[in-house]
Write a protein that binds this DNA or RNA. Sequence first.
DNA 1: CTGTTAGCGCATTCAT
DNA 2: ATGAATGCGCTAACAG
Lengths: 366, 366
Amino acid sequence: MTKKLTIQDIARLAEVSTGTVSRVLNNKPDVDPLTRKRILRIVEEQGYVPSITAAGLAVGRNRLISVLVPALTWPLVSELMLSVAEIVEETSYEIVLYSISTSNHEHDCSRVIDRILATKLTAGLLAVFPGQSARHLMELHQHGFPVVLIDDQNAPLDDIPWVGADNRGGAYAATRHLIQLGHQRIACIQGPMKYKVSHDRYKGYCDALQEAGLERDPTLVQEGDFMPSGGQACARAFFTRPLPERPTAVFAGSDLMAYGVMSAAQEFRLRIPEDLALVGFDDNPSSAHMQPALTTVRQPFPDMGQRAIELLLHLIEQSRSARQLRYENGRQPQKVLVEEVPRLQLPTSLVIRESCGALQKHSLFS
Amino acid sequence: MTKKLTIQDIARLAEVSTGTVSRVLNNKPDVDPLTRKRILRIVEEQGYVPSITAAGLAVGRNRLISVLVPALTWPLVSELMLSVAEIVEETSYEIVLYSISTSNHEHDCSRVIDRILATKLTAGLLAVFPGQSARHLMELHQHGFPVVLIDDQNAPLDDIPWVGADNRGGAYAATRHLIQLGHQRIACIQGPMKYKVSHDRYKGYCDALQEAGLERDPTLVQEGDFMPSGGQACARAFFTRPLPERPTAVFAGSDLMAYGVMSAAQEFRLRIPEDLALVGFDDNPSSAHMQPALTTVRQPFPDMGQRAIELLLHLIEQSRSARQLRYENGRQPQKVLVEEVPRLQLPTSLVIRESCGALQKHSLFS
DNA sequence: CTGTTAGCGCATTCAT
DNA sequence: ATGAATGCGCTAACAG
């Protein structure tokens, strides 16, 4: 149980001024190496931990990072957060979590963003799947506040830092795979169209159809909600149509919705993949363990999280030093600013398992 | 884009002192109602948001709540966090997230806890499944720092506030159900034994066996890791045994492990539930959509999260006012302190689906 | 290279 | 019931 130590205590022990201690702690260059070493040793020995609060007050911005996530129940959010958390915990920053799971997404989100700004609590913002509220984030970015989006940027004009997956390419690959398997009537269950990723995945689906010269049948497209129940509802809608109008394959915009399709298929006594081929999107951990194992498009979540948080950390450091540089007008900053690659699109990959019918199924009754 | 407003600005606009504004903002009783109303109006109009940072510095403790979670990839964590986040967002508190997913659980955890204390950043701590590190938390609690555990308290001597589920009862119900279905050789895949819940669930399993006069077979008990791959590995171990020694039913300590059992069953051409009955624990959202749908023990996660965070908030407020009361020695605190119910055990419920064989399965081939 | 000092924005205490 | 004044712990500017 470490007792409360202030920077003054350390200064006293090291027989230097608080200014020097502060300089050491913040890695300022102009400190005598010996003094620095001595101070660091004392800091270590005493187990001194600086007060983020006080530091924040002094600088006007804290060593905290806001993470804005949509529904916390999406498996992808966990996966993303995992790598984000791992990296942040190596730094002196902490994660402040905001979720905008509530119904009034739009309003709620801008309120949260205002709050983040006004309280000046956090140094930067990582927004996962911002959806429509991305435009609020644009404002932030334009005002010089470090922001990084994970997927789902929604305007072409965005020059906002962004890390995402190749949703369109993934959907294209998935759909093409179904086509190559001989399917002609391929249904698409979209995600909620308020998300850019849903549009992208739909486009990829259309791309593949068009490439194969297949006509797009509007009755084979439904908008889901990314959740199992939504997928189930959409699938029921397909299965209740007259036989010739039914799809022989379904491309679901998320694994969760694919699970719903499986449930619906069972209700209708449809075998997967014999009677219906199915492909999902995300590659949730559970998907490999479904019966049949779900063919899906893998998103590189760990990578996305890592890249995004590293980018954000970089932007934050940059904006800090930017303020410092005002006072060192003589020199140009050595470090090249990251104006070049603020956007990163990571590839997705098709993971072929049983539900699409490409593999021989380990039938339960073989 | 709200501009930075200080309490001083508000004071100037309202033509009062900062002291008064501060009193209003903190709901101190001794303020003229009219003045209060006027100030509140101005605060509203100007969109003033107090700086958590500065407030924290002044008081020595922030309006932040640390949440300590184990592996972020466990679905239950998402579900728990969901209700926690919802409630916290209604308050003036924010959530700071710490995960201890890394391998060196033990060391890492105490480091995180020290950090939480030393930085004095947060006002309270909510620890989800603390496992072995619960004893560090005990220290915190004994030093008067508000702490609430969600499940997995590990010592009987804990007088630490705690909210949990009836793991033992749930496991008992699940196992008894299998017994009533006629199974005699029921395997148990435990969670990692560093978690108290794993022990509890195992005890419930034993309870049911004993009640039925069934002998406990050590070869039918394996320790998993809560993850699908662990469950799969354990199940394989069962299935490779000579036929008479194999289980006819499996009780898995988590749904995720049950998924692994399903995969293993498929490898061995075992039908569920015909050749093997299966029950899980947790009721993850996906579980209803497995094929066959998983019979499992539902944990009341939303409730648990809600109760826990409310309790913590309560404790925090209490410790705040405790400090104030030192100066009002004349009066006894009106509010009864929550010494009575710091521990809450919520019931679990058995959700019967297909994998246990109790329901008629919608067979794929009927 | 280093010591000194003035706030950062707020809660709180002491006067009134 | 309220105004004025103090300090929380730290950083950054200034002066050596």
